[in-house]
């Protein structure tokens, strides 16, 4: 078996090369996986996400990955969710009405307001509610049309404003979920990935 210390979940629509390259620069040996057993037992799991909420959820349901991820979340096992990955943790999204999310956190992702350019493409300021957590203030790269608003109970939140304030990231021990792309957020993003890695 190939030695690995981080498993990246294949959601079918995500662009994995940037995540692989960023983890590789950290010195990690990432492996792309699609079996539920590995998602349950891997030391660290990354849930990337680009694309459509409904398509990604169907992919996760089909392979039993959704249950494996719910178990990881409930157990507090190391997990990094990126972009759509954060929204998948929630109850659902206006992007795919009727398709339930993993339901690990409260809230439904809603469309960003039409007073600003959507999709949000570019660098925006991330401000944590409290200092001293894993997510520090700085500029992160976003590529999203939908976002969550409510802070889930038991998680530390960071916020960004694009027309309206929304959840930039939530963290709870070795579990981190970001609406932005840490793997594309330059030195700031690399430093965040390093802190997450160290917290696992």
């Amino acid at each position: 078996m190939i030695p690995t210390d981080v498993a990246i979940v294949r959601t079918g629509t995500a662009n994995l090369a940037s995540v692989l390259a960023a983890l590789g620069r950290l010195g990690a040996m990432p492996r792309v996986v699609e079996d539920a057993e590995t998602v349950r037992t891997a030391r660290r799991v990354v849930l990337p996400g680009v694309g459509h909420f409904g398509a990604a959820m169907h992919q996760l349901q089909a392979g039993g990955l959704a249950d494996a991820l719910r178990e990881r979340l409930a157990a507090g096992a190391p997990l990094l969710a990126i972009c759509l990955g954060l929204q998948l943790l929630a109850q659902g999204s206006d992007e795919s009405p009727g398709t339930p999310g993993l339901g690990a956190i409260a809230g439904v992702a809603t469309h960003l307001p039409d007073t600003v350019r959507v999709p949000q493409l570019g660098w925006n300021l991330v401000v944590p509610d409290q200092q001293g957590g894993i997510v520090q203030e700085g500029h992160a790269y976003y590529a999203n049309s939908y976002a969550l608003r409510e802070t889930p109970e038991g998680w530390a939140a960071a916020r960004t404003v694009h027309g309206t304030p929304f959840l930039a990231a939530i963290a709870r021990g070795p579990q981190l979920a970001c609406q932005f792309h840490p793997e594309l957020s330059g030195r700031w993003g690399a430093a965040l990935l390093e802190r997450w890695w160290a917290a696992c």
């Binding site: 090369a17 940037s18 790269y141 792309h181």
Partner: peptide, 26 residues
Amino acid sequence: LSIPLTVGGGVRAVADAERLLDAGAD
């Protein structure tokens, strides 16, 4: 590169885009 990368040139079908994304385009 740890910032976003956009790639164009010769994209005529979904498969062309997929190859570029797999290679590392965002």
